[in-house]
Design a protein around this nucleic acid. Sequence first.
DNA 1: GATGAATGAGTGTTCATTCAT
DNA 2: AATGAATGAACACTCATTCAT
Lengths: 221, 221, 221, 221
Amino acid sequence: MSHAALAPDTTPRRSRRKDARPGELLAAALSLFVEKGFAATTVEAVAARAGVSKGTLFLYFPSKVELFQAVVRENIVGRLSEWAQTIERHEGPQAPLLRELMHQWWQRIGMTEASGITKLVMSEAGQFPDIARFYQTEVIEPGQALIRLILRRGVASGEFRDLNPEHTTHGLFAPMLFLVMWKHSLGLCAPAQTQLDPSAFIDSQLQLLLHGLMPPSPHTP
Amino acid sequence: MSHAALAPDTTPRRSRRKDARPGELLAAALSLFVEKGFAATTVEAVAARAGVSKGTLFLYFPSKVELFQAVVRENIVGRLSEWAQTIERHEGPQAPLLRELMHQWWQRIGMTEASGITKLVMSEAGQFPDIARFYQTEVIEPGQALIRLILRRGVASGEFRDLNPEHTTHGLFAPMLFLVMWKHSLGLCAPAQTQLDPSAFIDSQLQLLLHGLMPPSPHTP
Amino acid sequence: MSHAALAPDTTPRRSRRKDARPGELLAAALSLFVEKGFAATTVEAVAARAGVSKGTLFLYFPSKVELFQAVVRENIVGRLSEWAQTIERHEGPQAPLLRELMHQWWQRIGMTEASGITKLVMSEAGQFPDIARFYQTEVIEPGQALIRLILRRGVASGEFRDLNPEHTTHGLFAPMLFLVMWKHSLGLCAPAQTQLDPSAFIDSQLQLLLHGLMPPSPHTP
Amino acid sequence: MSHAALAPDTTPRRSRRKDARPGELLAAALSLFVEKGFAATTVEAVAARAGVSKGTLFLYFPSKVELFQAVVRENIVGRLSEWAQTIERHEGPQAPLLRELMHQWWQRIGMTEASGITKLVMSEAGQFPDIARFYQTEVIEPGQALIRLILRRGVASGEFRDLNPEHTTHGLFAPMLFLVMWKHSLGLCAPAQTQLDPSAFIDSQLQLLLHGLMPPSPHTP
DNA sequence: GATGAATGAGTGTTCATTCAT
DNA sequence: AATGAATGAACACTCATTCAT
């Protein structure tokens, strides 16, 4: 309608929008799936939040299910590599590293919108086994591998006892999972006096776990 | 499978079925709710699995939500009152009681279909506030009250230290929640070597927690 | 179950109830149909109010429609014969008779539950043409005949002018119909200041009509 | 029936239909509501009569009740504002205005399908309080306000006596209500000789009312 | 005769999906 | 590529009617 071609803006509107579309749709879908779950999210609402029509959504994603799967895939990759580097570079005792990582997890994932992805995946995994497999492979297993690496190093240096590594790993995951689910479900309607201070909770759980990991104090007979 | 085919059909058609109906419907509802979640389960499917028509279901349960609540009462709330009695009657130190209760929980809820209900509630609480409040009121709060009672008794007798009761309660719940979510979502597709022995996991978590709860033993040099 | 046979009550319970059943059902149906209309009345509610089971109702009335028709028929007959006698016996001017009859109508029909029948018939007539015909034949036409008789007598004696009798008859019915419909529908939610004093309204309408019926005053040129 | 069969099908399939849809749906809804009443009319039947699917109806009207309200606005409320203008602009005596308006009412509402709406509301107001309140607010009260305005002006100019305005207003409505109920219920099966000429009936009722409203003429001996 | 458990065809309403434009 | 009008298969829930007991 206007003579926009004369303007210096050389990036053509159409094609830039075209490239951006899937991303805008995925972002809209992410926030709605997190907010309302899979069933209660309508494709119309996703399209509206992305500023396109319902038909356009189906141009990029052939069905609601495939949109959901694309959302999960899009938002899972590449979260762990940073921590992998931190761990690899770390020198000194492992306990402060564990403590640091768990608090970082809370700051960067647990307390942010990103924890909604975890909640989403856990909630809908039963209906979408391939999503569960995907998350298991791409997130859970690499995450557990990092933890096991720390534990192995601690055992090797004599800082930790040589306990069952599965139990310890899961024992470290359990409070994080608990916090995520609490935040996104029942915590929403828990009475005020049951409210939870997540950082303090992490601290207390870590203290228990680290104490359990420590070797029997040397001056015990 | 049995030789029953030769026997005349002795199942009474109407009057005697009436007593059995609610149970059949509750069983069908439990398995479908666990399998598909609340929103994705249709009352028609429940009725069909119970071998009756849709209308018949509404003869016994006035709505889908109340059917669900009946399922929860049947499978979970009932157990809580049993445990309340066990706790009330208990004499002696609290640590073995906690251990016993957590293993009973695993045997009677955690490892059964009923644990799917907890997963369902955590997953869909956001969309069905009625259900979330119901579960919070009828299950979570009474359950936490039982735990707090044990903790208080332990503190009173000097068996436990006087730690933050919220953290301890949540710390006891976290592994159970972890097991439930694990079993019903990601665990479904975890590789064999990551499989978890739930009883042993409960044991190890309890050991950590109980150790953390014990007062500094006076006779340690 | 009891030895009631020994008691002196010789009227057998069974048969007496049996004879009373249809009447109890009709009474229950009448009040519910008046209260809620045809569609919104359930046969279950009728049976419950009559103190019998749903199945029993269908023993006496083969369908909801036929129950409805029986209710209307049962409650229409024999209301007018009294007034017919009053009119026949009346001597003297007709105007006070009309006035007396309309106020009696309000006292005996309009303000009582009976006006619900009229409302019911008018409301459902479109769906039940034979009920409409029945009411027309059994109530409306005899009623109009009575009015026409009065008018004819008034004209014969010179008390009334010789106006179109259809218009006058309908003009006398219109305020009664208006009161009935007002009472049973919109009047229910009219604001307080629009409330209507039925007796005063009848008076004012009668005054207009009677004035219109009077012959031109003799001393007018 | 027409020669159109030879012409190519020029009815545009989608985009141009959109403008016509609401009107087609409203027309279908009007005739079905009048024919069967509110409760007995199904949205599916309305859609079918308009030649669209059930879902399409909900594209234009968010609920059955709002469809009904749109029908009322289209067919009745619109007329009221026309009359409001007529009344406002009117100069000279009020009596001919009243006469003109009542005849217009008969031509535009009373004798058309639209009068069935009034009958419907009176019949089903008890079961659908939303509809009753809506009609009361949007039709009855504005209509009465118009009548009261005319009466007030007539009293102010000395054309009318200062009678009870409620009774006079209701007295003017009563014959219209009578005609509507007559047309849509019992009149459907009244014998031929009882048939009513509505225009003449309106005339005669108006004459009575206007005569009653006139002040005692000062120059009568 | 009387019961009440059981049915199944409908209700209004929603929403993923299609397709002519 | 993008639209948005149109669809129709669900869904939870109701209720007149049936029929074995």
